[in-house]
Structure formats: structure tokens, C-alpha cells
Write a protein that binds this DNA or RNA. Structure first.
Length: 234
DNA sequence: CCTGATACGAAAAGTCATGC
DNA sequence: GCATGACTTTTCGTATCAGG
């Protein structure tokens, strides 16, 4: 996925109000950015970090600038726009770059499924294959040389695990796909120390047959691409 | 009948106010 | 003192509806 036009850099003052962040441009101007990531963003929003933002031409937006990347003071690159994770996997699937998910002729997005009125991120179909339901999660929390998910207690994430597991018992294929959008993360683990219930459900879902896939990415202000498989730690 | 515009629901989680 | 819930903003996909 390419960022066109190019992203602009600025220095982070602070993130506040869940959706907003104030930054200072190199010209000294203060801007308010929209922040699509509603997560805790631990380690991804330290005041003084360099943030890279895009500008939308949608006239209805109150805040046309969107926070896309953080360049931390440890020189790590992080994509904080979690909406990108879905797009990145979608692109990778169309280009057949995820071998575990190859061989499907049809890729649908945001299909309703399950019993809790949820929508699955991606649904893969082919005439000779069983349906494959995929939930995409972006991993941006780095602690002690390991990437963790989730970065905060997430009831919704737990719901997604239950529903994926349900798909497996319905005879479908179900995949939890971790898109690692942090240049410093080389392995991923469920965050038992953050959401122990989630970690339990994770193990249970995995035992029940929900597949876990984990891919890293290359990140720079020009764009992001899912590139290589990463190991998952139990 | 099809296309484009518009409306709407769902999603995200921290903060603050309210109620017990 | 703790739990609950409204509120915050934007996006995306789907559904609906109008118009050509």
C-alpha cells in the first residue's frame, strides 16, 4: 500500500480525547490530527515522537489530517492506523503473497457472520474449497523483544475468538491473522499479562482448530507491505 | 434497470458523570 | 467506592432511494 501523496512529518505533543492528537509541524504550526486507532497505543504515542500524517480531501471531515505512522525515538516505525491492516492483507491476498491463504478465487470484505451481529474482516471462497473466515488484528505493542496482542482488555476481541471458533465447529475454516505493523517486532504472543481471559480463549480457539497466522511488514513513509511470516509464541 | 448519491449501523476504548 | 453508560470522531460497507 502506497501513501500518495507523501506523508508529512510532525512532532507529537500529545494524544487526547481518544480520537485526536496535537502535533507541531516543522514550520512550527500546531495541527490537530484524527487518530483512527482507538486502542491504548502503548509505546506508539510518546510525546516527542515523529508522527507522519496523511491529508484527506473529503470536505466533510472536521479534521482532514490522519495520523498514519509513528517514528519512535528508538527509531522504530509503527503504523497506528489500524484500518490499514485489513487493506494490507487484502492486497497481499490479491497478489497471492500469503501462501497459507492461496488458492481462493473470491475475496469478500466485511461479511456478516456469527450470532452476535458481527462482521468478519475477510471471507475467502472458491468452488472447490470450504469458506475461510479471517479476522485481522494489527500488532503494535512491543515489550521485551516481543510483540503482544491485545494491548488492552478487549471484550470485542474475545467475541471475535468465540465466533471464529464457532465457524470451525460449523465446518468452516477460520483464521486469526496478526498483521505486525511495528518494525521492531520479530515474534508475537498473546498478551496474558494484559488480558488473561483473552489469552485463555486464544489457546482454546487454537486447540479447536482456529488457525493463527502472523506476518510482518516493511514500513516507511512511502508505504507499507506485508512481507514475511513471523513466529508465534504460545 | 442500473448507477450514483445518501443514510445508517457498527466499530474502536478512554474519560467523565451518574447512580447505587 | 465501584460499576455502568454516555460521549467522543471518523471510516467503511451495505442498504435504500432517487433520477436518468
Amino acid at each position: 500500500m502506497d501513501y500518495t501523496p507523501r506523508l508529512q512529518p510532525a512532532r507529537l505533543i500529545k494524544r487526547y480525547k481518544r480520537f485526536l492528537a496535537d502535533v507541531v509541524t516543522p514550520e512550527g504550526e500546531t495541527l490537530t490530527l484524527h487518530c483512527a486507532n482507538t486502542g491504548a497505543m502503548t509505546g506508539c504515542a510518546t510525546p516527542g515522537d515523529t508522527v507522519w500524517y496523511s491529508t484527506s480531501d473529503n470536505p466533510k471531515r472536521k479534521y482532514p489530517h490522519s495520523w498514519e505512522l509513528t517514528e519512535t525515538q528508538q527509531n522504530h516505525w509503527i503504523c497506528v492506523n489500524t484500518l490499514r491492516a485489513n487493506t494490507l492483507l487484502y492486497e497481499a491476498l490479491l497478489e497471492n503473497r500469503v501462501e497459507e491463504l492461496s488458492g481462493y478465487s473470491d475475496v469478500k470484505t466485511e461479511v456478516r457472520y456469527g450470532t452476535e451481529n458481527s462482521r468478519v474482516d475477510l471471507l475467502l471462497q472458491a468452488p472447490d474449497k470450504i469458506d475461510c473466515y479471517i479476522e485481522v488484528k494489527s500488532v503494535t505493542l512491543l515489550q521485551h523483544e516481543c510483540g503482544y496482542f491485545p494491548d488492552a482488555v478487549t471484550l470485542r476481541g474475545q467475541k471475535h475468538l468465540r465466533e471464529l471458533q464457532q465457524m470451525v465447529s460449523n465446518g468452516k475454516r477460520a483464521v486469526l491473522f496478526f498483521a505486525v505493523l511495528h518494525s521492531g517486532i520479530q515474534q508475537v504472543s498473546p498478551a496474558r499479562h494484559i488480558d488473561s481471559r483473552y489469552a485463555e480463549l486464544f489457546t482454546e480457539a487454537q486447540r479447536a482448530g482456529v488457525e493463527i497466522l502472523c506476518y510482518g511488514s516493511t514500513l516507511c513513509p512511502d508505504g507499507i507491505t506485508l512481507t514475511h511470516k513471523l513466529p508465534l509464541l504460545g
